[in-house]
Design a protein around this nucleic acid. Structure first.
Length: 477
DNA sequence: GCGATCAGTT
DNA sequence: CACAACTGATCGC
């Protein structure tokens, strides 16, 4: 049924219901039938040529062995664009060493192509006995018609990539970045840039911070970061190519009405949308963040009234969810205690309203921020004991993206905490990704010509399902 | 020791 | 149980 929505009626059988995807998530065997327009087929077809989609800039250095450019063939973009049904290919390669508009060009090192002699070829092509096959950069992390990748640091030097974008500082996006990084400039927001330097020890010469809502020209492409409403420093990335095509990469984001007001999303048409599809399933419903924050604050106040010596704990990953504990801090007029490493991170944001509330004394504040993983009954009980009678009970909140109970998505007051002795833990549906309906509203507003999901793409059935939703939402476009 | 990859955790 | 986002163990060099 999914395939039918996806396009031509006769395509169903030709779908490689591929359980055997290759390293890139492409079906491993070629389709046996003529062209179709199913999403899985699109994946397959684009997988054929994507590696050579962008000829590397001519000035790129090559290994000294004089190897000829293996992938500088014709502009395969052409095939690609046709495969995706996006009109015509750009007339010519726009990838030249145009300096960054912000004047950061001088500090941008030119990428040093993997010349270490290590094999780093495209995953599928394993010449003789490649026991260790390197994983190729999946096509959905590469931006066609540009020498750009987004959140692609775990693939070594990506062929043809001269600028690596990092949408935000979460592990599953920066993974692969180490202090040995030498493959090219990393473009990200200033806040993310600080974290990259501070926590990953990346050579500053490679880190290129860009301001939000400011247009830069990078390798001939106009690039603008927009607020993503995800975690601190997270950006949507808007690309405007010289041929007029505009692409939007959402990184991770939570779509909202106010996001729709951005001038870059109000005018023109997005040809390609790289979409954070984390919760692209109708089972994912959750309230606005403000409602959840309101609930958390009210609950904290209620517990404190009953037991003034209650310790409020909020769980968090490295970055994200700050507004939950900031709101408690403001409402209760108490500082925020957290350990030294998180304090360092939070201060690096450069947010005065947050910084001024951070305390390094665990006894002086009834509001503590702990790693999400540590919010377990046993753990919190022990934690309470270490605080030596200063507190007599723990009220903990774990802000999770997904909601198991239908109730929590609809009516916050129906949320039942888990209590053991003096420890109470609430799971609250505070999400920094879009809900299903938010994704739907965003797509109906944006009406992109093509959507590439970037999350949950590992399985073909899932991809087709998501594509079916997109078709439905964009019907009549 | 370092990084890449896998397994495990909430 | 789910999910994102880790965290730790193991392997190879």
């Amino acid at each position: 049924m999914v395939a039918a929505i996806a396009g031509d009626a006769e395509t169903d059988l030709t779908l490689p219901i591929s359980d055997d995807l290759d390293d890139n998530g492409f079906p491993a065997s070629p389709p046996t039938a003529p062209a179709t327009s199913s999403f899985a087929d699109d994946f397959y077809r684009s997988g054929i040529d994507w590696s050579s989609l962008q000829a590397p800039p001519s000035h790129r250095r090559r290994p000294a062995d004089g190897t000829t450019e293996k992938f500088c063939g014709p502009l395969v973009q052409k095939n690609l664009f046709q495969a995706w049904g996006i009109q015509k290919p750009p007339r010519e390669e726009a990838a030249q060493g145009v300096p960054v508009g912000a004047g950061a060009s001088s500090s941008s090192p030119s990428p040093s192509v993997a010349g270490s002699g290590r094999k780093r070829r495209w995953g599928g092509s394993d010449e003789n006995g490649a026991s260790r096959k390197p994983v190729a950069c999946p096509f959905y992390k590469q931006i066609p018609g540009t020498p750009f990748t987004v959140d692609a640091f775990r693939y070594g030097a990506v062929e043809g990539c001269s600028a690596y974008f990092l949408s935000h500082f979460h592990y599953d996006h920066y993974g692969g970045l180490t202090k040995k990084w030498c493959h090219g400039p990393i473009y990200c927001t200033a806040l993310t840039a600080r974290l990259v330097k501070m926590l990953l020890s990346i050579d500053s010469a490679y880190v290129c911070p860009l301001e939000l809502d400011t247009e830069y020209v990078i390798d001939g492409v106009k690039v603008t970061f927009l607020e993503a409403n995800h975690c601190p420093g997270a950006a949507l990335i808007h690309f405007r190519l010289s041929d007029g095509k505009t692409y939007l990469h959402t990184g991770d984001f939570r779509a909202s009405k106010s996001m729709q007001l951005h001038p870059l999303l109000q005018t023109g048409r997005i040809s390609l949308l790289y979409l954070d599809t984390t919760y692209c399933n109708p089972k994912y419903k959750f309230p606005p963040q403000e409602d959840v924050i309101d609930f958390v604050v009210r609950t904290a106040q209620r517990y404190l009234k009953k037991q003034p010596k209650t310790l409020i704990v909020v769980g968090a990953y490295s970055i994200g969810k700050e507004n939950v504990y900031l709101a408690i801090s403001q409402a209760l007029e108490v500082p925020i205690y957290t350990d030294a490493s998180r304090r360092r991170i939070l201060h690096s944001f450069g947010w005065p309203d947050l910084s001024k509330r951070i305390s390094s004394c665990n006894q002086s504040s009834p509001l503590h921020v702990l790693p999400l993983a540590s919010l377990q009954h046993e753990n919190l009980k022990k934690y309470l004991e270490t605080l030596d009678q200063r507190f007599l009970a723990v009220l903990a909140f774990r802000p999770t993206g997904w909601t198991f109970s239908e109730a929590a998505g609809k009516e916050l007051d129906l949320i039942k905490p888990s209590s053991r002795g003096r420890v109470t833990i609430y799971g609250v549906p505070y999400s920094e990704h879009s809900s299903f309906s938010e994704l739907r509203d965003f797509l109906k507003f944006l009406r992109p010509q093509k959507v590439i999901p970037t999350v949950n793409v590992g399985n073909a059935a899932n991809r087709d399902k998501m594509q079916a939703y997109f078709r439905e939402w964009l019907k009549g476009t």
